[in-house]
Design a binder for these strands. Structure first.
Length: 605
RNA sequence: GGCCCCGUGGUGUAGCGGUCUAACAUGCCACCCUGUCACGGUGGAGAUCGCGGGUUCAAAUCCCGCCGGGGUCGCCA
């Protein structure tokens, strides 16, 4: 080793020892005589003092040092002179008196600051990701991610789970996301697909008798990216045999609870993790991944609205719709233009419009007068009706009621999104809170207008509830699944289910989704056949590691917790991938382009 | 594919029709400085204002198109 110690580990008790260090020049302070270097390695920063009276040669060397030079220093650890300690630095009580120094490598001036946390254009950061990762924030994120994954492995290992690797080159299957495909050299015109998740593989491992499996698994989906979505991402893939919903849910709760208590003790959780059915979540929060860090629940005002003379309300109800609302705290003073903006937002989300009631400041809701409750619909609403709505939404004087009327799905979606946006705008969510929850009883299918058929809401291997089996052919939309989502702070962290383990039921499901028997055999025959060799009842879940670490790190996109992420256009700016390949490679893969050359779309940078 | 936001020395920003021969901070280079720690001081270099077109007597500034980046809808079993 070129070093005996890490820069960041040196403390008072090292004083008097002779050591060697190696790292990067974080900062240089040249006093003409004395030169101070903040030397940085992974463990931290320590001050090195170059004194010409101690070592003229190393003082000379120090004069050449610049930011990010790689340097090795031999010297003595010494307590700093009284009054010069730096309490901001863990190593601030000591310094290293350099006796000898060598430059191991020079560095160009970095394109952005390593030593300061300044927001830098993200494409520049991605191009020089290896420099970006030198920054403290990114280093901490990578370290946190390591600890999270290690905790998961240790936790599952202690519970007799076996980590098994599964292939990345597998078979393209219908259903789900668009596949990334890899052309085969050996089989002209045929393709592998990268797994969207190891779903079928882990089920086969259950058939194989592993009983408890996990894997830190890379998944690939060729869909457009988002702040919380990358073309490739990592899941903690878990599958167990001979279990029921409760087993998975409690395993996950135990895992996350102990992990956060260990790794992020400063963060708070509500325990036990609340459970909501899908129907409840949609009713109360307008989404299947509610942010439960704050209230502002959607309330059903239909009964009250039906008694009003307001046609927007009564028409919606007689058409089978609902009138629902949320109470936005403290926004009763919103101006006309602010309310207009809210209305435009609601319209953009699909509502015809919203009705607002601004509650003026009174000592209590009971004291509220007609003059204090302002609404475009005021002349159709009695004071009692306003009070009843306000009470139902748990409003206080000074709050704003936002009411939407129409089809239930639309009303929930609009109010759910407004709730989310207003919660964010008003800063209602405590940043140190992790509001985990399980969402259960998802519908098995949803009707796809584009495909003109029923599609699995979770995935086609999810078991329906046994009680709902009779509905499978007559009314698939009513069938509920034995699935459970795990959500936190408005993000879907993972999705799991009890699986189908008989070929009969699995085949039936595929038929509901519009497949012919020969299509089923061709695409899923391997799985169906496996089920016929004594497949045990099984189920599992797959928490997304990127999103989890993002939440724990307090980051707002998952790129910040991925060493080499892709940008929004799915390009890797460090490598400039994707890129063209040679004529030879194309020929070996039996690929040629229609017009001789690949279509445009070249990468910049 | 749609919508929204952004693009000015290396970096981060200001400027938003004429004062711009483009400002500030920091970084960079040179010199000075023996207790600094975002060291300090003096001096200096560094920008075809993302690209193209248009409007105008005049464009970094207004308009259109394109490119790049981010967010989002669609999409994401």
């Amino acid at each position: 080793m070129l070093k005996t110690h890490a820069c960041g580990e040196l403390r008072k008790e090292h004083a008097g020892t002779t050591i060697s260090l190696a790292g990067w020049v974080h900062r240089r302070r040249d006093h003409g005589g004395l030169i101070f270097i903040d030397l940085r390695d992974r463990e931290g920063i320590v001050q090195v003092v170059f004194n010409p009276e101690v070592s003229p040669a190393s003082h000379q060397t120090a004069g050449e040092l610049r930011s990010e030079y790689v340097v090795r220093v031999e010297g003595a650890v010494a307590a700093r002179p009284a009054g010069t300690e730096n309490r901001a630095l863990p190593t601030g009580e000591i310094e290293v008196i350099a006796h000898d120094a060598q430059i191991l490598n020079r560095s160009m001036t970095p394109p952005f600051y390593i030593s300061e946390e300044v927001e830098v254009d993200e494409s520049l950061r991605l191009k020089y990701r290896y420099l970006d990762l030198r920054r403290e924030r990114m280093k901490q994120n990578l370290l946190l991610r390591h600890r999270v994954v290690k905790f998961m492995r240790d936790f599952l290992d202690a519970r007799d789970f076996v980590e098994v690797e599964t292939p990345v080159l597998i078979k393209s299957t219908p259903e789900g996301a668009r596949d990334y495909v890899v052309p085969s050299r050996i089989y002209p015109g045929k393709f592998y697909a990268l797994p969207q998740s190891p779903q079928q593989l882990k089920q086969l491992l259950m058939v194989a008798g592993l009983e408890k499996y996990y894997q830190v698994a890379r998944c690939f989906r060729d869909e457009d990216t988002r702040a919380d979505r990358q073309p490739e991402f990592t899941q903690l893939d878990i599958e167990m045999s001979f279990i029921e919903e409760e087993d998975i849910i409690s395993l996950l709760e135990e895992l996350f609870t102990s992990m956060i208590e260990t790794l992020k003790p400063e963060m708070r959780m509500a325990r036990p993790f609340p459970r909501l059915t899908y129907a409840e979540a949609m009713e109360r929060y307008g989404t299947d991944k509610p942010d439960l860090r704050f209230g502002m629940e959607i309330g059903d005002l239909s009964d009250i609205a039906a008694t009003t003379g307001f046609a927007v309300f009564t028409r919606a109800i007689s058409a089978g719709g609902r009138v629902k609302g949320i109470c936005v705290p403290g926004c009763g003073t919103y101006t006309r233009s602010q309310l207009d903006e809210l209305n435009r937002r609601a319209q953009a989300l699909g509502a015809g419009g919203i009705t607002t009631i601004s509650l003026g400041v009174a000592s209590s809701l009971e004291e509220l007068t007609a003059e204090l409750a302002k609404s475009p619909a005021a002349k159709y609403l009695s004071l009692d009706q306003v009070k009843a709505m306000a009470a139902l939404l748990q409003a206080k004087p000074g709050d704003l009621l936002v009411i939407a009327a129409g089809k239930p799905d639309m009303v929930n979606k609009v109010l759910g999104e407004l709730r989310r946006e207003m919660g964010e705008r008003l800063g209602l969510a405590p940043p140190d809170l992790l509001a985990f929850a399980f969402i259960t009883d998802f519908p098995m299918f949803e009707w796809s207008e584009t495909a003109g058929r029923w599609q699995a809401m979770h995935h086609p291997f999810t078991s329906p509830r046994e009680a709902d089996l009779p509905l499978l052919d007559s009314d698939p939309g009513k069938v509920l699944a034995r699935s459970y989502d795990f959500v936190c702070n408005g993000f879907e962290l993972s999705s799991g289910s009890i699986r189908i383990h008989t070929s009969e039921l699995q085949r039936r499901m595929f038929r509901v989704m519009g497949y012919t028997d020969s299509q089923i055999d061709e695409r899923f025959g391997h799985l169906l056949e496996a089920f016929d060799f004594g497949a045990p009842p099984h189920g599992g879940i797959a928490p997304g590691i990127d999103r989890l670490v993002m939440l724990l790190a307090g980051e707002e996109n998952i790129r910040e917790v991925i060493a080499f992420p892709k940008n929004q256009s799915a390009a890797d700016l460090t490598f400039n991938a994707p890129s063209e390949i040679t004529e030879e490679q194309l020929a070996e893969l039996h690929i040629s382009f229609k017009n001789g050359n690949p279509p445009g779309n070249t990468l910049a940078l």
